[in-house]
Amino acid sequence: MPEDIIIADRPRHQLATRIWHWTNALCLLIMLMSGLTIFNAHPRLYWGEYGANDDYAWMAVGSSPTQAYLRLGDTRIDTTGVLGNWQDSEGRTQTWAFPGWATIPSTYSLADGRRWHFFFAWIFSAGLTLFMIRSLWNRHIQKDLHMRREEWRPSHIWRSLRDHGSLAVIRQSATHPYNVVQKLSYIGVIFILLPLMIFTGLAMSPAMDANWPFLTDLLGGRQSARSAHFITAFLLVLFFLVHILMVLLSGPIGQIKAMLSGGQDRRAL
């Protein structure tokens, strides 16, 4: 029997999933770019409760009008032209850490960056909460993301990872139920990384620290929370890059169409 017989009348991606997917993508992009504006105000990261210019930063962007570097621990990488020293659209040298094309707004304004960040943070948090509730209700989590017991076996996960070396298998994933690597990625993003963005963000707020001190304590202090916020954001960027690569390899037009109009649920009988 052919593998792609339509057995269900439901779309591959339900309406709630599609609305959330695109709203969330927009929010994350805007929050990443406005977040880089905020980072530019103090391009140094620390561990612990406190951290300022005289304290040891585990990560720092150093800039000057002639050259710039990124320091990770004791390793210095020259970033002249990329980070900390770059040309704006009018050819002037700027010494903010992240360049204008990566920030919102494109010229430095901490106040504006914060406005964009917090406005979309509300939409992002409300969207994630509603999506989680709806996905339990419409059984998206139970049907599509739930890991069956045998799927947790390391050998199963390893096999699924190796399968991603084959273009044919990646192509198939567009019409098949999610494989283990997909499930783990989506679970990791939806239930770990995205909530972590919210909680590490809240832990940096002095008023939240007064209301919910356990949040900042749990993360090891305000500067640790800020570092974790930054690291988690870049794990999401990493997910985004792999996600886009997989969409491109598995047939981008069909995938994007399915995420817009729902597509069809095709499963092997």
Partner: peptide, 27 residues
């Protein structure tokens, strides 16, 4: 649009003031 964005600042104020008993101490 700036006013729309700034509405989130009002939301931050209202929610943070509603969360606790308003006299919570900073750490």
């Amino acid at each position: 649009f700036q006013d729309i964005l700034a509405s989130a600042e009002t939301a931050n104020f209202v929610v943070q003031r509603t969360l606790g008993d308003r006299m919570e101490l900073a750490s």
